[in-house]
Design a protein around this nucleic acid. Structure first.
Lengths: 225, 225
DNA sequence: TAGATTGTTAATCGATTAACAATC
DNA sequence: TAGATTGTTAATCGATTAACAATC
């Protein structure tokens, strides 16, 4: 009765399919083929069918996939039905941008808590949420936090992670460029924006470094993740 | 005389090693073993040695790797010596955060251009750069842009990508959650913040959905990328 | 039935890892 | 020389892809 394991690579593509399906649904489309879905998601059709097969068999041969049904299935397997409140810790430039980012609430992750240690920020309001002091994280009268986002300087990221864990948060998205460790049972995912620029720099450099010497050098494309 | 191909997975880890090496250098450390580097980067030692072997043989058996030398090599292979100006298009919450993000300039990517279509924003200054109208992108008297960052709504992302390409930009980092296409020879990389939350949600849900039924269920950890 | 499209197989490709000979 | 640590091999594992039988 246990659900089949979904490969990591597939997990990373499910949100892309979900976004495409949501767009299709908004456009009134009710059925989609693996070929169409692949085009819209930027992958190939074999991969789409293989990925969706891990969810079960929700397509109809000769017809395609039901947009609504597939949306529901992916959403449910991603845990989006239960995932809710996001707390952002650290309201510097990045934290403030994330707090105001429409994309989060739009895709099922309302920002319910904002925390900082700067007294000049505590008490002020941002995107409809009042910034609280980090020391109040986990207080009984505080917001129900399902996911913690770390947007602090690297130097304090581990301390913030520890506080989030102590407050009962079991899923953390970390933007600080440093290694942090969390106990077993806590899910941690990292995003490093400068790293993305460096990786981009590598492929750009690789494909163009020799342009002056050899203008006819073939351009290979970088993986888009 | 051509450099050996570096696997994509390795390219994604080189910036992590570079960050660790920079920290070590700052702390006065001159030599590091694959074991130490692995610990600090959050991977295992075999992977570090394999990854570094693609750069050539810069270690010394029985001793380790020279911190300075390795930093230089990685930095050079990532193209960080030539990579320079970043232009950010779209100065909503995310774009403004990226423009003010210290991490970019700190790691070799100074923000030299800011572009938007909103006349209320054009002419104002942000992080020391005056916001210009998108129509002036690529103007002869404009900044030299090596990397373009798209931080606009999804609906206009393709148009912005086309304009960046027309202006001669050959490397694009795209934050808009939609599929965009660029001509061969242009390197595109995508970051989708809400997608990261959804992937996090999957692993969290998978590892905890059954907690109520089976509190002793083993917790598996999510890949941190 | 005929055409279309899924779901699955199997081959291929790329990434990871342990082990150890090479060598400082 | 003895101890330490790299660089590389080879086995294993996971991801991708084309092909096609199943079937709507």
């Amino acid at each position: 009765m246990s659900l089949p394991r979904i490969p990591d690579a597939t997990v990373g593509r499910l949100p892309v399919y979900l976004r495409v399906l949501t767009d299709l649904d908004g456009a009134g489309v009710t059925t989609v083929s693996s070929e169409q879905l692949a085009d819209l998601a930027g992958v190939n059709a074999a991969k789409v069918r293989k990925d969706l097969s891990y969810l079960g068999t929700y397509g109809t041969r000769g017809v395609g996939y039901g947009v609504d049904y597939l949306r529901f299935e992916i959403s449910s397997r991603l845990g989006l039905a239960t995932a809710t409140g996001v707390a952002i810790v650290g309201l510097g430039n990045l934290g403030r941008a994330l707090a105001s980012h429409r994309g989060f609430a739009d895709r099922g992750f309302p920002v319910v808590g904002l925390f900082d240690v700067d007294d000049a920020k505590v008490g002020t309001e941002l995107a409809g949420v009042t910034i609280a002091h980090l020391d109040t994280l986990g207080a009984p009268d505080g917001p129900a936090v399902a996911i913690g986002v770390i947007a602090t300087p690297a130097a304090v990221a581990q301390d913030v992670a520890d506080r989030l864990v102590a407050a009962g948060v079991r899923a953390i998205l970390d933007f600080a460029p440093t290694l942090i460790s969390v106990p077993a049972g806590v899910t941690l995912r990292k995003v490093d924006l400068a790293l993305e620029l460096q990786v981009l720099s590598y492929y750009h450099h690789r494909d163009h470094a020799l342009d002056a010497d050899d203008p006819a050098a073939p351009s290979r494309s970088a993986p888009t993740r």
